[in-house]
Structure formats: C-alpha cells, structure tokens
Design a protein around this nucleic acid. Structure first.
Lengths: 334, 334
DNA sequence: GTGAAAGCGCTAACAC
DNA sequence: GTGTTAGCGCTTTCAC
C-alpha cells in the first residue's frame, strides 16, 4: 500500500504538503504539485478512504435500508433503488446496504458506526421501531413509500393516481368499477383506497371492493385471490382498478381462466408500470409511477440536506401518469 | 458520539481496558468487564467502524461490482444478488455497491480505498479491463457468470443445462428443435450454443438457429426478433429451446401473434426460472438456475478465502434442473 | 488484570 | 509555500 507518507519521503517533502497537493489546495506551488501528482500516479497511490473518513467524518457513502418482501426480486422497489443508485453514484457516493444485523435491527447504530452521510429507507415496515429511531436521529434521511405521514418522505400521489385510474375507466363508459385494494394498515394503501372511494362517491357509483381483507404484498397471488373474492361477491364488474401491476395480472388471469376476455368483457388497469406490463397478454394499461423522478428527487433531497446542513424536508409527492396499452377499452353494449 | 475514551474516563480506567472488555478479551476481570459493558450500553456506545477498519485493516464489508443491463431491474442478476446479499448479511457483512466512479472505472482502486474484505463481480462485461485488474489483484474475489474461463468464478453448467433442455424437448417427440441463442462473444453464451449443437449432432438432427447474430441482453425484444428471424428463415419448428425466460416469452408472443398456439403447435422452454414464468400465458416450462445455491456458494467461497487466507478457488459449477409448467407438450401428429 | 504508548493513514490548524 | 503537530477512534504490543 502506498501512502502519502511514502510519497512525502520519496520527495523529501512533508505529508501535509502531499495531502494538500493531492486535495488541490491553492497554496501549493505548481512545481511541487506536479512533482507530487506525477509520483502519486506513478506509484499507483490510492487514498485510504477509511482514514479519510475517520478524520473528515464523512464516508461519501449513503446507507440504504431495504426491507422489502422478495428483497431485490421485488421489481417495483428494486426499480426505485436502481434509479436512486444511478443518481447517487453519479454524484460520487457509494451505496452501503445496511444489514439488519441479526435480531438487533438497530439501523441507527449501524449507520453511525459505518459513518454514512445519508440514508434512504425503503422499508415496508417490519422493523418500525428501528426505522423510527433512524428518523428521529439527526442523520440526513429520506424514506420512500412511508407507512405513515411524516417529514422526509417521498412517494407517488396515490390518492390522485387512483382517482385518475378510475376516471379513465369511467370515461371509457364503465360504471361498475371494482377496486383491488392494497394494504389497509399503511399510509400509501389507505390513500389509494380513499382515492377510489372518493371517486365512487363523486360520481354516485356503487363501490365494489373487499372491505375486510388487507393485501400486504401487492403480489400476483393477492391479485388473483382478491379478484376471485370480488367476482364471487359481486359478479363481473365492467372494469377493475388495481394498486399494482402484479395484482392486475393476477386478476387478469383469474378472469381469463373463467372465460372472460380482457379487455372485451372487462377492462383492467394496473399500477406502477413495471416492465412486465409489456409481457402480459394483453399488454397492461397502467398508472405509471415516475420511478426515475423518485430516485432522482430522493437523491437530490439527500444531497441538499448534506450541503445545506438541514435535516428536515417536506414530503415530496410525485405525480403519476397513465400509460395506455391494451387492457382497457370502451364499454361495449352487447 | 460516545467513544471508548469517554467510557474510560467515566470509569477511571484506561481506553485499552475498555477496548479489551468490549472485545471479550479474557484477561479482563469479570468485575471491570461488567462495569464497562453496563456503562457502554447505558451510554449507547456504538463502535466507530471506520476507526476499527483503519486499524484492523478490514471493514466487514464486501464490495459488489454490479454492471448489468437494466441494472437492478434485471430480474435475473438482481435475483442472484438478492440471494448473495442474504447470505453475506447473515454472516455479518455489509454490502458496498461500488460505483464506477465516473469514467475511470477503476474498481481495484475503489476496493482498496474502501478497504473491502472481498468482492463479488456481476458484470456482463463492459469494463473488462477494470475487472481484469481486480481479478489479478490479491483481493478475495468471486465472479458470477464470467465472460471468460478463469479461476474464482461461479456459474451454472450451461452446457449440460441446454443439453437437458433439448433432451426434454426431444423426449417429447420433437425433432425440429430451434435454438434462440444468447451471446456469441462470452463464455456462458458460447457454452450454451455448444450444448445445443452437440445435442443436435448426437441425435443427428438439423440445427435451426441464427448463426450470425449474437444476442447480448437476453431480453424480451431479442427473443421476439430472433424468433421472427428464425421463423422467416426456417418456418415453424416443433419446439424452441432458449437461453432466457424473457427471450422465451418474446418468442412465445411472436408465435401467438402469428396465430400459433403454444404448446399445441410449438413447445417453448425457457431458461433461468424467474418469477415471470408463472405470469406468462401459458406458464413457462424452464431450465431453472439454482440462484439460491449460487448466492450461497459465492458467499461461502468468499468467506472461506478470508478465513483460510488463500485467494484462488476452482470454478464452481452449479447444476440446473427443469421446472415443468405449461409451455411444452408432446409432439402431436395432426 | 490494567495501563502507557505507539500507530493505522489521513487532514487541518498553526507556525515559520 | 511548506512543515510541525495534533488529533480522528480504535487496537495492540509491552510494561508493570
């Protein structure tokens, strides 16, 4: 390992001179600087980030708490993380995946210990206590898809997104609009339900949804089962509004398995706009979450906190837009 | 921040005593130890991992070089990473995502700088030079799906996997077996082609594949286009053997769009066994890569190197097995 | 069983 | 402009 001490010794200068030259301090003469720079590259000098981190009290690293069902196989959350990762790495930071350290799950301690500059929390909420401690610390932190309303969060405007979904179906002539609900226990899930119920009320329609069963994983299976439940309770709707693409595809398959055609008999709209929308048959019309914007804005907010020194930022709410594919069509009158 | 110095001062002992107590040295008396432990927890002491890392020369962190098309949205590689992550974190390591640091892409320097203990490389090969430097360093390193044969790699036995795929189709009565190829320029891709060609030769069949077009991203689109190309060149095959689930689904859709039924008219077999196999219509029969085993064995190998101190391990080759769903059936004689 | 002291590699006052 | 010095928080010989 080549250190600044070696370079200094080799050149007969002091370590501080080397350090300053390497860090671009203006007070170093051009002559010494170039001598130092040349030797440094020649010797293959690499700064020891650990030592730097110890004295600078920052690690150029952002921690990520990622606690999500199916982990990185969860296409939605991993897509958000991907967008975040590109932005953060583009700004010169590394990403440290914080493990939950056995049972202790003390993310705050872990962050402090590893000296991360900022933290992104993507957690669907199993270790609430540990995350809450994080939030109440003075770390720069952003939380994606929070399970409760709070500062320093970023999320899609789910309330209006679902309303837009419903309106799209409504404008297509559908009146019996069913809703495939998500979680009833977290903020995002409740927002979506509210969007649906408000729309239904505004238009004076009948609600079609399962009141007593919260869906926590937004999965294909949940979509399939909820559609079954819905169908057996209410019969065939005109259209179904969903809270995830996977659930939409689950519902789609339930209906197809029971002899119905989508979109001829029923229209279905997804939520998220994952890559699987294009591989379903029919291709899935969906409410697109602007994942790129989410990743970028989460990154920007975090870096802004670092630069400005503040630790609180108002919730960032991102708009959703519809992506029309083939799973919805005008209500037919056969 | 509470440091060992504070604890020491508070208790009127030396920092070295505190350090030893905290680290479970046997020479510390039970009495002092418990005094120290109690105060430490009471004060909320968290060891500064950076300082520890500086002196211990390890960071309890494994670096991950992840350079893959679509990034974490790539369901295959992100699934491998997920399995790896769980294993590694279970062993007490954090995962550091190494950024490619702008244009320099010097992973080796980055690893040294950040003091990572080991590295997993999941790279489909754009920055070959940088990765090669990594491999030739004395870091503990494993590489998944290498683009060339080398020590310290882990991958699925693609050659035999494709042979098994073909044999499965053959045993179903299919003789006109087409092949949707992957990359011609990397090791894994060539292994798969070889498996196909050897099988064809052994059974004295005609090969049906596109000789002059390498597919690099194993995507839906590539599957669709290659199937089109294949169909227009050779007409309808009995069955098609593919190198990825996504390509299989692309091919499936091409055939469906052209009025053919899978599996009645054509059988298709995928490769990987991603979660999307269950949501395609029909559900995709596929060659399953044992992603859990890959993640675990990569982790084990790395930790073994760390413990044993060696840096070279023979290639780890993982078996693949077939998962039967609905996209293949016996050749019919209509 | 406990402590003093050196040092990991680096940065940043402060002198000169 | 350059060097001296004092740490950052921790571990680890080596004395006692």
């Amino acid at each position: 390992m080549v250190t600044i001490a070696k370079i200094a010794q080799e050149l007969g200068v002091s370590t501080s001179t080397v350090s300053k030259a390497l860090n671009g301090y203006s007070e170093i003469s051009e002559k010494t600087r170039s001598k130092i720079m040349n030797l440094a590259t020649e010797m293959g000098y690499t700064p020891n980030a650990t030592a730097q981190s110890l004295v600078r009290k920052r690690a150029d690293t952002v921690g990520v708490v990622y606690e999500v069902e199916y982990g990185l196989k969860n296409l939605f959350f991993s897509s958000v993380l991907e967008a975040f990762r590109r932005n953060v790495q583009g700004r010169g930071y590394d990403i440290l995946f914080l493990s939950d350290n056995g049972t202790s799950q003390n993310y705050l301690k872990h962050c402090i210990s590893k000296n991360v500059d900022a933290v992104l929390v993507i957690s669907t909420g199993t270790s609430v206590e540990s995350v809450r401690k994080l939030i109440n610390s003075d770390l720069a932190l952003m939380m994606f898809d929070p399970w409760y309303q709070s500062k320093n969060t970023i999320y899609t405007d789910s309330y209006n997104a679902i309303k837009k979904s419903c309106k799209y179906l409504y404008d297509l002539g559908h009146r019996k609009i069913a809703f495939l609900n998500g979680s009833y226990s977290n903020f995002i899930g409740r927002e979506r339900l509210k969007g649906y119920l408000d729309f239904i009320k505004e238009k004076n329609l009948e609600p079609y949804y399962i009141k007593n069963h919260s869906n926590e994983s937004y999965s294909y299976d949940e979509g399939y089962k909820t559609m079954k439940n819905l169908f057996e309770t209410y019969g065939l709707p005109d259209a179904v509004c969903t809270v995830s693409d996977l659930m939409a595809i689950g519902a789609l398959h339930y209906l197809q398995n029971h002899g119905y055609h989508v979109p001829d008999d029923v229209s279905i709209i997804g939520f998220d706009d994952l890559s699987i929308c294009d591989i379903s048959t029919p291709k899935l019309t969906t409410m697109k979450q602007d994942i790129e914007a989410i990743g970028k804005q989460a990154c920007d907010a975090l870096i802004d906190m670092l630069v400005q020194g503040h630790r609180t930022v108002k919730p960032i709410i991102v708009d959703a837009t519809i992506v029309v594919r083939d799973s919805c069509k005008k209500k037919s009158n056969h």
